[in-house]
Design a protein around this nucleic acid. Structure first.
Lengths: 353, 353
DNA sequence: GTTTGTTGAAGATACGTTTCTCCATGAGCA
DNA sequence: TGCTCATGGAGAAACGTATCTTCAACAAAC
């Protein structure tokens, strides 16, 4: 019992291969009668067109690559930060909506798999300067859209948050809440996010005349984060407010504060960049900056598909279209000196029964 | 500047197409001299074999589908639970290691995308009873491996945790810590995980003579979880220990306990099933059951690839090979009446400077 | 001197579509 | 009767690879 091909359908319906193809794809000039007849026969035979053959013929696979930066030898720590997971999910969803599927691939160009899968285009997350892989993809004529400003490689388009503005907003927010010495928990890596955020912090410090107080650690190592948080609060010139650039920083800082007997927010104001909603229920709830990865993932994929399908900016225009997306500061108790009256009341009072 | 095909390489190297193919794939009988010559020319022309053509010819795409159950209209809430994210990551990684790529697809069989991508096999997460999609895949002759016991559909193999044993272990653990009335926070859905776990709980209650105390809610709705947690602790016959089946239950229960003035673990013992490490740093840290999604993802993919490549059990053997994977109970303070002396000391004492 | 075997490589076919080109047929019109 | 036009559909050429078969050349063995 072989899989039915288009030939079998044609034979069974008593028409030509062309007619079957046209009928099924809604092309050509055919009377409705023939169309439905062919469709019925195809259905009866359980005919499924071969994706491989169609791809070979049309040059379109309907597949989009999603490249994830790898830390160390582990291919993907992209679950480490909720940002990646959320972004990937939104990207997958957006792709499916437009009839494409997403393939997650490692950022190391020399993996066998890259040659074995036919891609229509690729989404690259935070490519480093002069990324050889992006260059190679571009040379092959494949559209490439990056999440994060491309270091110095030719991409079709890019999307990013306005990290500098976001940091400034947070620092102002903390200062308004009474912070005098704001510290920063940052990373040692040289990706765009870390660099832009740190630079914005340093610039702000310079402008308001505060001495920078920061600790950096390799962001991919969760243990190092806890140690760095501890180091920051153990300094002789201990900050009275801290912004942590990475997702787990909130809990790490909270734990460190607890160890040192610091009350949040009375003794220490806390903000961290995170997509996780656990910070809504910590004690106290922690103010977070959301980068809105869903929006970014969706936008990136749609830009890419536009490029694939020839919609959007003219290819001749060599200046890649960049797009800045807004962030969202979710203010909770950890960054407010006067905690607002809690508005969420328990469904029932314990003694009410 | 067209993309170079195998023909161009053959012409440039002065050999036939066959020779190029053989040289590049390490087949045929060719002297090393010819081999390296051809390889060099191919490299110079930037030749990349067409994945589509190869797939059409060989019938192998090197692509594996990963099907995720969808709640409501949103295609993927699989980031909701860290389990799915971790599992998907491990699966992706395992696939890449063996030269395959992973495509995430929705579990609704009638999505266009299913027909447009050539799959060598599929991993299905927790398929419901009589899943039509699995049946269809199986009919097409594609290997299908499921994460979770297959309800009643033909799969090549499956992998699952021993949920019943895990629940019993937890209940015994709680009872040993002094719990007299153990409650359960469970789901309304009928998937295998929920069913097996709840049944195990009910069976245990029956055996030890405790009246079941449980609340159920639609697991895909995070708000409902908080409400259900509250409901459970507001009961007149309030439990003195609770096991929550889903990832966010820990924080929800903790918040609810706080509202009712219940101290953990003194007044309430807490355990939940989660892969998230935030529970290591909550106050108090919460005991969790890890399903080890990494191990499951890896195993599932390897079983699938074995089936694709003809390794493993004979296809004639109709009884699908099932495999039970161990879980891991990570005991923390929330489930111990006598909190152990904390062994993790701060790097420096605050006053030490 | 014929057979046998081995090495190196070319020819040709098939994989299953899509699509371009072209051909009947019959109707409308002068 | 001829001509144009629209309609419905068939033929055949790709798409780029892998592989089965064939073949020449030459050496070794009988």
């Amino acid at each position: 019992m072989e899989r039915a091909g288009i030939r079998d359908v044609a034979a069974a319906a008593g028409v030509s291969i062309t007619t079957v193809s046209d009928a099924l794809n809604g092309k050509g000039r055919l009377p409705d009668e023939t169309r439905s007849k062919v469709r019925e026969v195809a259905e009866r035979l359980g005919y499924r067109p071969s994706a491989a053959a169609r791809t070979l013929r049309t040059g379109r696979s309907g597949l989009i690559g999603l490249t994830v930066t790898t830390y160390g030898q582990e291919p993907f720590t992209f679950t480490e930060f909720a940002y990646f997971a959320e972004m990937a999910r939104a990207a997958t969803s957006a792709a499916l909506t437009r009839g494409y599927a997403l393939v997650v691939l490692p950022a190391t160009s020399r993996h066998d798999v890259w040659g074995n899968v036919a891609l229509d285009g690729t989404v690259v997350i935070d490519p480093p300067d002069h990324d050889p892989m992006v260059a190679e993809l571009y040379r092959q004529g494949l559209p490439v859209v990056s999440d994060g400003r491309p270091g110095n490689c030719p991409v079709t388009a890019w999307v990013d948050n306005d990290h500098a503005s976001a940091v400034l907003e947070i620092l102002d927010h903390l200062a308004a809440a009474g912070a005098r010495r704001i510290g920063l928990l940052t990373g040692t890596s040289t990706d765009t996010y870390t660099r832009l955020s740190t630079d914005a912090y340093l610039g702000w410090c310079h402008r308001v005349g505060q001495e920078p107080l920061y600790e950096e650690y390799p962001a991919h190592d969760p243990c190092a984060g806890a140690v760095a948080a501890d180091r920051l609060l153990a300094r002789p010139d201990r900050p009275d407010a801290v912004y942590g650039l990475f997702d787990p920083n909130g809990t790490d800082l909270l734990a460190a504060a607890r160890r040192y007997g610091l009350r949040v927010p009375e003794d220490l104001l806390l903000v961290c960049c995170s997509e996780s909603d656990v910070y809504a229920t910590t004690e106290p709830p922690i103010t977070t900056l959301s980068l809105k990865p869903q929006r970014i993932g969706t936008t990136v994929v749609n830009l890419l598909i536009d490029a694939i399908e020839g919609i959007g900016p003219v290819p001749g225009t060599d200046t890649p279209e960049g797009q800045l997306m807004p962030t969202e500061l979710i203010v909770r108790r950890s960054s407010q000196r006067r905690p607002p009256r809690t508005t969420v009341s328990a469904p029932r009072e314990p003694g009410e029964e």
